[in-house]
């Protein structure tokens, strides 16, 4: 994987974007990063328990994807789902409160970090058994084709999910039935602590695409507009031609798999090299170098975002726990539905 260093020329997709859209995308990436950092601190203080998988380093993918979506389109994601929820416009307070296990959480405190759902925002999970959401996403796409609703389902998975059965079966059916779905593998190089050299029989995951009757598209993430354009093309193919696509995005997570993972498996200098090509830092550079913004202005934005996330943590902390009887709710639906 060839990584541009930190002084490399900015990618064309980023340099040709206007100031407002660059600032918007930058701010959304920043919100995700600060949200995750706030969550990590809350975790170390014992406010969040269970599993916590951070999205730091991969933000441009969620932000770019949301830019390419239309109302009615859906994201189906893994347990590393916070970034998608925020990019789709889910309230940071409700997201944070969900992880604190509070009544005010996105799903009332029953889901936690790994199960973010907000139907009306196009945030359709939040699945935590690796690979078992691929058939679900294919099912959403099946319904879209059946109903003719024109919606596209964008399903994210990790490089660690490509070997498991449901991934294969879901993609087989999506390809066989020409379903309007985009599968996006976020290849962050590690299946938990195991590098892809020890999990993938063929390094290029999109080499599987023809076998599923799909178009493949593989690229290293550079900036959110590049992601918007590449995933946008796949979304168009789904919407206009009812053809699925298998996209592989080469990315990197700067934190461990989860909070309990010190990530000692990384190669020497690896993290530093990827940090140097951080799409977030590139967007920062674009604002400074191309759009005449100052360090002070960006710091002021950062202060606002940090304040938003601190407030979210405070909101979550102050929120009540779910009512005791809430544990019995939403198990069965009464009557004919």
């Amino acid at each position: 994987m060839d990584l541009p260093d930190k002084d490399a020329p900015l990618p064309e997709t980023l340099s040709s974007a206007g100031k407002d859209e660059t600032l918007h995308a930058y701010r959304e990436m920043l919100r995700i990063r600060r949200f995750e950092e706030t969550a990590a601190r809350a975790y170390t203080r014992g406010k969040i328990s269970g599993f916590l998988h951070l999205y730091i380093g991969q933000e441009a993918i969620a932000v770019g994807t949301s830019l390419a979506m239309q109302p009615g389109d859906r994201i189906v994601s893994t347990y590393r789902d916070h970034g998608f929820a925020l990019a789709q416009g889910c309230d940071a307070n409700a997201c944070m409160a969900e992880m604190f296990g509070k009544k005010t959480g996105l799903v009332g405190g029953v889901g936690g970090s790994m199960h973010f759902f907000e139907r009306d925002k196009g945030m359709w999970g939040g699945y935590a058994i690796v690979g078992n959401h691929i058939p679900i996403a294919a099912g959403h796409a099946f319904a879209s084709k059946y109903l003719g609703d024109g919606a596209v389902t964008i399903c994210f998975l990790g490089d660690g999910a490509v070997g498991i059965g449901p991934t294969h079966e879901g993609m087989t059916l999506a390809g066989l039935w020409d379903l309007p779905v985009v599968f996006v593998v976020e290849n962050n190089r590690y299946s938990m602590g195991t590098p892809l050299e020890r999990t993938l029989p063929a390094a290029d995951i999109t080499s599987r695409a023809p076998g599923y009757g799909m178009v493949g598209d593989r690229f290293t993430v550079e900036d959110p507009f590049q992601v918007r354009d590449r995933i946008g093309a796949a979304i168009r193919r789904a919407r206009e031609e009812s053809q699925p696509t298998l996209v592989e995005i080469l990315t990197y997570r700067f934190r461990g798999h989860s909070m309990s993972d010190p990530a000692k498996y990384r190669g020497k200098g690896e993290l530093e090299a990827f940090r140097a090509s951080d799409p977030f830092e590139r967007a920062n550079r674009a604002l400074l170098e191309l759009h005449g913004m100052t360090e002070e202005q960006l710091e002021a934005i950062d202060d606002e975002v940090i304040a938003e996330m601190d407030a979210a943590a405070e909101f979550a902390d102050q929120s009540p726990q779910p009512d005791p009887d809430y544990r019995f709710e939403n198990i069965m639906i009464e009557g004919e539905g």
Partner: peptide, 16 residues
């Protein structure tokens, strides 16, 4: 593809 079409059914049911 039992896990595939069972999951497709669930995903379709979630859409109504």
């Amino acid at each position: 593809t039992e896990t595939g079409f069972a999951g497709v059914g669930i995903g379709a049911a979630m859409c109504g």
